[in-house]
Nucleic acid binder design. Structure first.
Length: 196
DNA sequence: TAGAGGATTGAT
DNA sequence: TCAATCCTCTAC
């Protein structure tokens, strides 16, 4: 079943990041469907320095994060990689969850072709890689996850607390003490997570 | 309008 | 460890 707006519009972004583990991210373009289980996420909030919208910094880029929860926030990183985020909370509360890795389910052949590598364990094991595999880019910024191009479903499987690993987030050392927040979540021993 | 730097990746 | 690569934000 497709996740509803109310799932995304809750005020606790770190809880949503945790809840997204085990959910299924799906994209469909030109009738080609690709999907995977979300196995790694990170939470970001206007309240902390790791976030683009820190201190309510409102720019052309961060505007999407100030919209309603349930939208897609995609931005370009290092001039090369598209990063896929899920906007959470209500309008004007800029929070988002970065999806860092998925475990491929459907359309694996297409994902391998897009990724130009043959190792299926490596095609979606990182935020820049999974967007390439799913065919997601910045043109999708601001679209709704309740639409028909990209969406998230709940497969009904329960993730045990003991399978969830919590750590600090990656690549935001510039955020000072906020870089230490325990806001990265991933499934223990999953072969597709971005780092061991 | 110029300059610095980044929520990464893959090759060396 | 380092370059690729270009958009975003800040300072002038």
């Amino acid at each position: 079943m497709k996740l509803k707006k109310s799932f995304y519009q809750r005020p606790c972004v770190d809880q949503i990041a945790k809840d997204l583990l085990g959910k299924v991210l799906i994209s469909r373009f030109n009738n080609s469907l690709t999907s995977g289980i979300i196995v790694e996420t990170e939470a970001y909030s206007f309240k902390e320095k790791g976030c683009h919208a820190y201190n309510n910094l409102r720019t052309a880029r961060t505007e999407t994060m100030f919209g309603d929860g349930g939208k897609i926030y995609v931005y370009l990183c290092y001039g090369i990689h598209n990063m896929f985020n899920i906007v959470t909370n209500k309008k004007e509360k800029a929070e988002a969850v970065l999806v860092r890795a998925i475990e491929p389910i459907e359309g694996t052949d297409l994902m391998i072709a897009r990724a130009s590598t043959r190792n299926s364990h490596r095609i979606t094991s990182g935020p820049g890689k999974l967007t390439k595999a799913l065919g997601i880019d910045r043109t999708m910024d601001g679209q709704l996850l309740t639409g028909y191009d990209v969406w998230i479903e709940d497969p009904g499987t329960k993730i045990a607390f003991s399978r969830i690993v919590v750590t600090k987030r990656i690549g935001i050392d510039y955020a000072g003490e906020d870089a230490l927040l325990p806001w990265r979540f991933y499934l223990k021993d999953n072969p597709w997570i971005s780092r061991p």
